[in-house]
Design a protein around this nucleic acid. Structure first.
Length: 418
RNA sequence: CGGGGUAUAGUGUAAUGGUAGCACGAGUGCUUUGGGAGCAUUUAGUCUCGGUUCGAGUCCGAGUACCCCGACCA
């Protein structure tokens, strides 16, 4: 992609109405556009990152046997009345049309997925079943905050699992714990993310949050570094500590943001809709369910929040919008021709390159933009690099670059991204 | 929802109740190119409604939006 053609440009000034680092950098870099409090549009750069996160999650969900669907955003009021949540859920968006009909804008999809399944499954032979989607969710947060971290419209992966026995559920639940750990490692925040024992409300024995350590987090958790286990402050008690084999004096208090959660729904949603199955003996039983969520926008914002430095974003290679930021310094013929050659060669090798081919832009501005955008590898072509018979390669997080050949550049980038 | 704060051009900011200015951006021309360049020139603005006043960006009232703290967050 030629940066001269890229839709959106960077801004030098921070927006006055954004204090949080994630939103500030994402807006200054032109990744997202703020529509209103807690609602953001994704621009080309932001969408590229979002798609990469989405694909990592999709891969891991498919690996555990998930089947992807896309359920409706508009949801019938009757379904919500059946579960009692039309009244009980106070962050539900209720929308009316001119005929007086009311619908909910989906904040979650138990009320949709369960009735759908009722149409198709009824025998124990249909189980287990894992259904997921990646879709926009709507929640009327009383207070949207922290940029991308708590929004009113946001993209979420939600999976629902369906089981005929508690044992089967527990097996799958444990598989999902591993899948989640893999996802957070793959997007680059595994080292800061802890599986955290949490409250599942009144109905759940099993509930875990995946909490990423950051001072801007909304939760307080207690981490046992040795075992990598954490407990949310909400549920901290001697009983829980004993159960988890944790010693109080070894726990470290941290603020953290919840990037994912998984929990046991038992029959909470299958019962109201009478979702049941017939076993081998012909007896009818309610279906057991689990639910597994990850907020993609929040995850994206969290990565920015925890990995950025004072110059800008630092994307992990796995989710960076491009792998290489190629800078042509100087508008002379020699530099332009050489940069163009490098651009074409890298592209041909299948490397995603953002080529800063803009004319009349000072070197300093190009460097600053590169730091802000946070693409993992920066490759500079200039009269100086040409004189040194190579390309200057520098990783975003490194201070100094080195001169490498085009072949070495290609190998380095491919090697580290494969 | 309680408390606090803010609202001026695309962005960031000035302006005792008295001519809305500066910088960035964007457009044009020339110069410049290793850490957010220079000159010239052009472009574009007082959140909404009401009130006070000879006169309101500024004062008063209401509304709206946004930010922060708290409460809330299957």
């Amino acid at each position: 992609m030629r940066q001269s053609k890229l839709f959106t440009r960077t801004r030098k000034e921070s927006p006055a109405d954004e204090v949080s680092r994630n939103a500030e950098l994402l807006i200054r870099g032109g990744f997202v556009h703020k529509e209103m409090a807690g609602v953001y549009s994704y621009l080309p750069l932001g969408l590229r990152v979002l798609r990469k996160i989405e694909n990592i999650i999709r891969e891991e969900m498919d690996k555990v046997g998930g089947q992807e669907v896309l359920m409706s955003t508009m949801q019938p009021k009757e379904n919500w009345e059946k579960t009692g949540r039309w009244q009980a859920m106070d962050d539900l968006y209720k929308v009316g049309d001119s005929s007086g009909r009311e619908v909910a804008l989906g904040p979650t999809h138990e009320e949709i997925v369960v009735p759908i399944l009722k149409n198709y499954i009824s025998s124990h032979k249909d189980f287990p079943l894992y259904i997921y989607q990646i879709q926009n969710k709507f929640r009327m947060e009383l207070r949207a905050k922290s940029g991308m971290l708590r929004g009113r419209e946001f993209i979420m992966k939600d999976m629902y699992s369906f089981h005929t026995s508690a044992g089967d559920f527990e097996n799958f639940y444990s598989k999902m714990q591993d899948a989640y750990k893999t996802i957070f490692s793959r997007v680059g925040i595994g080292h800061l993310t802890y599986m955290t024992f949490a409250s599942g409300g009144t109905f759940a024995k099993y509930s875990h949050e995946f909490q990423t350590i950051t001072p801007v987090g909304e939760d307080v958790i207690y981490v046992d570094e040795a075992s990598g286990v954490a407990v949310n402050k909400e549920v901290l008690s001697d009983e829980i500590l004993n159960q988890l084999n944790l010693k109080k004096e070894k726990l470290v208090e941290q603020r953290a943001i919840e990037v994912g959660n998984i929990f046991d729904l038992k029959t909470k949603y299958s019962a109201p809709f009478d979702l049941s199955f017939t076993d081998e003996k012909g007896e009818k039983h309610p279906v057991l369910m689990g639910c597994y969520g990850i907020g993609l926008g929040r995850l994206l914002g969290t990565v920015v929040e925890v990995l950025a430095d004072d110059k800008g974003i630092i994307w992990p290679e796995s989710i960076a919008p491009f792998q290489v930021h190629l800078l042509a310094l100087g508008d002379d013929e020699t530099t332009s021709a050489e940069a163009d050659r490098v651009y074409k060669s890298l592209s041909k090798a299948g490397i995603e390159v953002l080529f800063d081919d803009r004319m009349n832009i000072s070197a300093g501005e190009k460097f600053s933009d590169a730091d802000l955008l946070g693409i993992p590898f920066r490759a500079v072509v200039s009269l100086r690099s040409i004189k040194e018979k190579g390309i200057e390669l520098k990783k975003r997080a490194e201070e100094k670059g080195k001169i490498v050949s085009l072949e070495e550049l290609t190998r380095t980038v491919l090697g580290e991204t494969s």
